[in-house]
Write a protein that binds this DNA or RNA. Structure first.
Lengths: 144, 144
DNA sequence: ATTGACTCTTGATTTAGGTCAAGGGTTTAT
DNA sequence: ATAAACCCTTGACCTAAATCAAGAGTCAAT
């Protein structure tokens, strides 16, 4: 695990699956700390930066916005707000992630049911996918 | 469950949590069938349209693109490509949804661990959230 | 029969998240 | 010592997904 401190941007781009332009964009946006520079001005990355990039890419695939991701990353590196604040924010996050998990799970089940029952649902009725994610939320139900 | 066939756009907007402009936009984009019109030209929606809108909104929250959603919706209403094609596409979808579920689950666990261990991880080491989603994927590992 | 809240269409604008191009230095292998 | 492959910055451009504005018609309640 030699924490190699000598990757250039093209290498981390390849290893992380994030394009060079996008890496520089993330740096501008404050998602990535500005890395060391060579005398030539070339950026130089270590494994930690690579981990961050992979995290960002996957979180994005999961539908988190860059703002969400900024917040998640700050949870990990926060030496400021003390354990307490971090813990609280992490708990809020956890709750929202759990909600997403539940929704996604329902979509999954809807798909599975669709696959299982497909050959035999002559009458239309409600499609299992739609049914999975289409109930009201009660707070939406102001009188018509 | 009187399938009320007389909601105007503002009502479904309120009930679905999707703005009026966005509803019309979805119609243009083909995610929503053009609804009935009154003689005045006003759109008139029923419960089914409301279900679709809720589905769309939630799927979007889960990080699906409108294209993804179009495809998911088409799975539900497809009387064309016969059971076979639908089943196949649904299976592909299911696989991808399962992958997302797994990733999201890992993020969840990372958060939970962060909350549990926060008070006692004096030495930095690797943060559990980052660790949850930052391993390489092997196909990314072309030699540096 | 008028007022205030809705709705219509068309077309322009915005925001997030990148992506590209131009012009010019740097490194490495030969 | 030169070519090929890399990297730099600045600034323009792009796509998806909305959102807004203008000008005009409709509906419900007073």
């Amino acid at each position: 695990m030699a924490t190699l401190h000598h990757m250039r941007i093209g290498t981390v781009a390849r290893k992380s699956g994030v394009s060079i332009d996008t890496i520089r964009y993330y740096e501008r946006e404050g998602l990535l700390l500005p890395p060391q520079r060579r005398p030539s001005g070339y950026r130089e990355y270590d494994e930690e930066a690579l981990d961050r990039l992979r995290f960002i890419r996957r979180a994005k695939d999961l539908g988190f916005s860059l703002d969400d991701i900024r917040e998640l990353l700050s949870l990990s590196g926060d030496r400021e707000h003390g354990v307490k604040g971090v813990k609280q924010r992490a708990q809020q996050r956890l709750q929202r992630v759990d909600e997403r998990l539940a929704q996604l799970q329902r979509m999954r089940n809807g798909l599975e049911e669709l696959i299982a029952n497909c050959p035999g649902h002559g009458a239309l009725g409600k499609c299992p996918i739609l049914r999975a994610l289409s109930e009201p939320e009660s707070d939406e139900e102001a009188k018509a």
